[in-house]
Structure formats: structure tokens, C-alpha cells
Amino acid sequence: MSMATQTLRVGERAIELTSDGFLCNPDDWSQEVATTLAARNGISLGEDHWWLIEFVRQHYHAYGNPPLMRVTVAAWRERRDGGSSRDLYQLFPEGPVRQACLYGGLPKPDWCI
């Protein structure tokens, strides 16, 4: 578990966050937590946001790391029958995979890819 430096209030629960805003304990994640985390950054999670969060979560749990951007874009194109990385950056402008990890309750990606 990472060192907590912030607390997120979700209903009656106090969720501990790292200095970067990631969950200290992945087991604290829920859709309500994701919604609250995103709202702090002015993002209202819609259907496409949830697809991306779920895609990244599934990839992480299957392979032990978040997906490459090229993998994410390929899956997005398959879902939308087209599209590009720009669509994903419109959903999460600070990095689609990184922000999907953030709101998906996954650890902050610590690689330089």
C-alpha cells in the first residue's frame, strides 16, 4: 500500500489517496469513487469514459500492466468502427491511459512508455 497524503470523502467513507491522487488501496475502488475522483478534476464520466476505464482495468488485471496506447486506440477503433487517439485525449486530456488508471483505482503507471 502506498503512503497516503490526501483523503477523499465518498459518502461516509474516507478514501486515502497518494500525493498524485491515486488510490492507496485498490480495494477502495468503486464506480462511486471513480465518479468522485473525476468530478474533482471537472470530468463528468460518460459512457465512453467508462468504456475506457473498464478496458484499462481489464487489461491491467489480465496482464499486470496498463495497455499500450496503440492497443487502446486499436480497441477504440474496433468499438467505434473508426476513430483515433484524439478521441481518447478528448475524454482524458492529461493522458487517456494514465487517467483511466487514476479513475479506475489502479496504481500510477511507473514506466516511461
Binding site: H59, A62, Y63, N65, V71, A74
Partner: peptide
């Protein structure tokens, strides 16, 4: 093998 599998699954 779990992590390496993504190379195959996504043709990387």
C-alpha cells in the same frame, strides 16, 4: 507468462 501474453494477444 501473464505479462508476455499481451505481445501475442495484440500482435505486438
Amino acid at each position: 507468462a501473464r505479462g508476455w501474453r499481451q505481445l501475442v494477444d495484440f500482435d505486438l
